[in-house]
Design a protein around this nucleic acid. Sequence first.
DNA 1: ACCATGACGTTTC
DNA 2: CGAAACGCCATGG
Length: 115
Amino acid sequence: MTINDTTYFEKVYAIVRQIPYGRVTSYGSIAACLGMRSGARMVGWAMNNAHHQKEYVPAHRVVNRNGVLTGKHHFDTPGLMKQLLENEGLVIINDQIQNFNDHFWDPLTELTNKA
DNA sequence: ACCATGACGTTTC
DNA sequence: CGAAACGCCATGG
């Protein structure tokens, strides 16, 4: 992947790794945090590469804008993502996070305010 | 160098 | 309100 260093990939990983326990975020928010308007696809793509990273990336905490586990199929097992999220106290119904907005963690707001 | 694809998102029909 | 098309940036063939 020619991943030398300064790639948006690492930025995405950095954000995803900073997602608190029991919290979730969306690709678009991460993309926006990186400065991309609609680079959400790239974020998802980065997640795909996340599996290549030596450091574990809680990709299960990253879902689409609808709070749907779109990428669950990309995990080791289709049910792993849902299992992990439920393990964190989240409620998943039909591959969709209930009270998604309540568990939503915005990197822009959280990181900007705290950092 | 060009075309096709992708774990998304927004706008239009 | 529901579905479809387009847009975005980057990677792979």
